[in-house]
Amino acid sequence: MSKSNSNMDAISKPLATLGRSVLFFAQILGSFRPDLKQLRAILGQVYFIGARSLVIIMISGFFVGMVLTLQSYVELSKFGATDSVGAVLALSLFRELGPVLTALLFSGRAGTSIAAEIGLMKATEQLSAMELMAIDPVKRVIVPRFIAGVISLPLLSMLFNLLAVAGGAAYAIYIMGIDSGIFWGNMVASVEFQSDFMMSFWKSLAFGIITSFVAVFSGYFTTPTGDGIGRATTQTVVVSAVAVLIVDFLITALMTWT
């Protein structure tokens, strides 16, 4: 590497990171082989991620559902429209809050531990040892975690939505006393499969790719020290959150305009 002054660094560093991300992403896709070894590793990782995230996703979903219902009930009652509380709940969940909040929780819980785990494997030379055993660490360590994350996020997001609807329904029907037939009827009538339900799916898939990639990237390219691992986990959460929110807007804009 040649000498570079700080002005150059301000431009060249982000560019270098961007270039490195693109190459790494291509390398991950190129190393994806759905053979038995990799599939088994992916399943194992899905299980790990599930075990790490299920409880917080479920609890958060339930409470978000309740608070959404409570908030919209207060506003809707001003117009005497409290019957649509189920519709408001489902639409805001499927279109926005389900995928976004799940992605944020996912990167905070599973993403950070993936980044830390990979960073630690790097710091303790486990990744280097694999290379020396002629085992490609991208194939054996990175790909399973990345693919598992991409698979898990839509599933977790669905679970989040389910629990949030349950939480909202419980609140509306048992505490607010809304008729359960009206609640569910309004909800089902207002949700459209293509624009709402599938929007939820596409978003969570995109967020799955983003958060999983940021996690494996941060871990794999971290400075192999305790401090470096700490920075990798922080970076995972911050970069994931910002990227998810930006992409959320882009997908929403794209899907509403077309």
Partner: peptide, 29 residues
């Protein structure tokens, strides 16, 4: 590299695998 065995400075055992599975890694691969 399949024909080379390397003992790294700190051993670099896989921390998530037991002794048996650690030694079995190259064989399985």
């Amino acid at each position: 590299r399949r024909n080379i065995g390397v003992l790294l400075q700190n051993g670099a055992l896989f921390t998530d695998l037991d002794v048996f599975e650690n030694v079995a890694v190259p064989v399985r691969e």
